[in-house]
Write a protein that binds this DNA or RNA. Structure first.
Lengths: 329, 329
DNA sequence: CTGTTAGCGCATTCAT
DNA sequence: ATGAATGCGCTAACAG
């Protein structure tokens, strides 16, 4: 691969001049601009981004660490973040923590040694020492979707309590008082916040206060299936099930089986997945658009990289009612 | 951030010695090993991967370019590739071409300027000049899932004809002769190969040769919905629909609607998505495991980076029958 | 075994 | 406007 030196030689100028022309610097003559450009094209010159970033202080690279790329919510988030970053000339290093704290640390270390300009992440483990080091180094970090008690970091999250409230309002309108809740892990901020909201609002919405109606899952489909099956075996079955995330809602859907009657049980999910619109049992949802979250988070991160002070934002949710018309219940 | 020079000073050795210790090089004394290690820990030293790769020839970084991360097939592929790469000490730059040829070129350029050691991609545009340049530079490239006529590159693909055959065998067993086919874009190798296989086998399997029963989609859900709707409006409706990929199958499923009777129409998909097992209309599928494909592709790419000659591989598919028992038809 | 030196590709001084 | 020189952090070659 030709270097800038080859280009300079071919163009008959010094590397300094070649560098200035290639960087679009102002102080260059028409003549050298022409010869350097021609030489670069002829040689098929391509700038070495790593060498450039060694000299300068920016790498134009962002680290993006999500909990699980196979979760549609996060893959949408990753896509949107990568897209937004690209629009600002940044490249993303995408990594998948895979719900594993060790892996999360390894990737953060890799990000740091790759000199990323900033990190966007959906954190999952409290007191992650690697995160502490990165912050100490002065690398800007923005949390998306989740937060951590152990570290004060700007974040983009949704109004979990508001979302839960909208779901409960829906369920009250539909006449449900016996509602099963498939919780997320309370070790994760979203899991904890949503469960806390349920407990807070239980009385106001006249929900049965039965501990058997709350089962903690792990934000994956299978745990949703298990939880739903256990609830359905109860002597006093719930008439509706609310899941703390989309995958667990899908798991609960699977548990109900292909012959389930929409009038039999009502499903509501936190997170809106595209597939929900296509199922034979409608799943209403609290929609928290990952695309919007990612866009906002990238904006914040870039501002932080530019040295600005950024404030956390909490986005509103929107309830999507997919339930059958009243008459059909 | 402390550099290796700071560590060397703190340890009272030269940078050369510090470098050797940190790299785990053999020729170091017990004494310097101890002092350097201690100094590095005390200072919180972290190697600068970009500076290292500027000196050496490897960056330990792979470029991974997929057509659409939001497609579960590709997100699974990306996850598996990243995981496999990580196990070999490689970091992945993940990019999303988003089914756009321009974007594909931009990312390939970015990969090259980041000096990736190799590129793993699901190609989508023939005669991509940027791809030509990368190959000319001697950067190893491996195609996954798809191939290109314009470039001879080692690839990991599935046996498309065999997969189609297994689907048609299933449909014949179930007594279908009027089968609608939702094709993929013929500009993509998989789309073309699967359609060609159908045409090839049409007579052998006694399928109706009605042009109205073949509609070309674009591998996205919506096109599957459109195609299925058009087929269902035909005076002589198909009794089964076969889709060239999972998302279009899901789209067709949506077109059938929540009240569709499993006995009414049979759905088969090329690609197996996790959700298929949970729908009220079963979707049988030709499973081509993206995890296996990605693992194999990473193995090949790393071998190619090590200068070995690698051969393309074609993986077999496995048919997953989710149709209702015969008695219920 | 270790210190010294050079150089990877580039941008940026400082002279001119 | 441009050339020469310097250094980013690191590894490798060469002496010792």
């Amino acid at each position: 691969m030709p270097t800038i030196r080859d280009v300079a030689n071919a163009a008959g100028v010094s590397v300094g001049t070649a560098s200035r022309v290639l960087a679009g610097h102002a102080a260059t003559s028409e003549e050298s601009r022409a010869s350097v450009t021609a030489a670069a094209a002829a040689l098929g010159y391509r700038m070495n981004a790593r060498a450039r970033s060694l000299r300068g202080s920016r790498t134009q690279t962002l680290g993006l660490l999500v909990s699980d790329v196979r979760n549609p919510f996060f893959s949408e988030l990753a896509h949107a973040a990568e897209h937004a970053a690209g629009e600002h000339g940044y490249l993303c290093l995408l990594a998948n923590a895979n719900e594993d704290a060790d892996q999360e640390q390894r990737y953060l270390d890799a990000f740091a040694s790759q000199q990323v300009d900033g990190v966007l992440m959906t954190p999952q483990s409290e007191n992650n020492p690697e995160l502490g080091r990165i912050l100490d180094d002065g690398t800007p970090v923005v949390f998306v979707d989740r937060t951590l008690r152990s570290h004060t970091v700007p974040s983009v999250t949704v109004d979990n309590a508001g979302g839960i409230r909208s779901a409960l309002e829906h369920l009250r309108r539909r006449g449900h008082t016996r509602v099963g809740y498939i919780a997320g892990p309370t070790s994760v901020s979203t899991g904890a916040a949503r469960l806390a909201a349920i407990d807070e609002l239980r009385a106001e919405f006249g929900l049965d206060n039965d501990p058997l109606l709350v089962i903690e899952g792990d934000f994956r489909a299978e745990s949703g299936t298990d939880a739903a099956l256990r609830m359905l075996e109860l002597a006093d079955r719930p008439t509706a099930i609310l899941a703390a995330d989309g995958l667990m809602a899908l798991g609960a859907y699977a548990a109900l089986g292909p012959r389930a009657d929409p009038a039999d049980i009502e499903l509501v999910s936190f997170d809106d997945l595209e597939i929900f619109g296509q199922l034979h049992l409608p799943i209403s949802s609290v929609s928290n658009d990952p695309g919007t979250m990612a866009g906002e988070a990238v904006r914040m991160l870039l501002a932080a990289i530019d040295g600005e002070q950024v404030e956390s934002v909490v986005l509103p949710t929107r309830f999507i009612d997919r339930s059958a018309p009243r008459g059909e219940r």
